[in-house]
């Protein structure tokens, strides 16, 4: 019963991902939000694996959970102030209500568009092959220029991050 297993996996992943996302959005303490964000990223990686893109799932775990979420946790802890009260983490009641209303409206529009779109087919095609060898071959043949551009971008971001971490006088902060 492959179908049932996939459906159960989808349901569990959906509940975990959306619950963790809701926690990351709504919890008061930013540390809890960062931890919930890591769990939500894990859930998205699980969705990738469920969709047949195993390589992307593991890349998601490595980059998002291993690097981005940890970086966000570091910055949350570095910018934590003991005197800042909990009430500064969210806006007032009415603006929170308005923001949530806008987000709900966007979701409603998207849901209507998805359910009414005629181009969404119901038949499921066979499992596509996304082997790491095929991805690597495409990266160094037809997608060589974007790959190099990503290299340049990461170098620039690295230099920018180091410059940002420096003091204004140019010395590294102790």
């Amino acid at each position: 019963m492959i179908t049932d297993a996939a459906f159960i996996a989808f349901a569990v992943l959906g509940i975990v991902t959306l619950g963790a996302t809701l926690g990351a959005v709504a919890m008061r303490d930013p540390v809890h939000c960062g931890l919930a964000l890591a769990l939500a990223f894990c859930g998205v990686g699980g969705f990738y694996i469920l969709l047949g893109a195993e390589f992307l799932g593991f890349i998601q775990l490595l980059v998002y959970v291993g690097a981005v979420a940890v970086l966000i946790m570091f910055v949350i802890l570095l910018t934590r102030r003991p005197d800042s009260g909990q009430d500064t983490n969210s806006r007032g009641f009415w603006s929170a209500l308005a923001g949530s209303g806008v987000a709900l409206g966007v979701f409603a529009v998207l849901a209507v568009a998805i359910s009414r779109s005629p181009s969404i087919q119901t038949a499921t095609p066979a499992d596509p092959e996304a082997s790491i060898a095929a991805i690597g071959r495409m990266l160094v043949s037809s997608h060589l220029l974007p790959l190099k551009m990503i290299g340049v971008l990461l170098t620039v971001a690295l230099i920018g991050g180091v410059l940002g971490a420096m003091q204004e006088g140019g010395k590294l902060e102790r």
Partner: peptide, 29 residues
């Protein structure tokens, strides 16, 4: 098998929750 529609709905919900975080929180992180 799970349809494309269900994945798109999960993704739309994820997007809406992210948008809610951007619009309602008062913390740059």
């Amino acid at each position: 098998m799970i349809t494309l529609e269900s994945f798109l709905l999960v993704s739309a919900l994820l997007f809406a929750l992210g948008l809610a975080a951007v619009l309602t929180r008062r913390n740059a992180i």
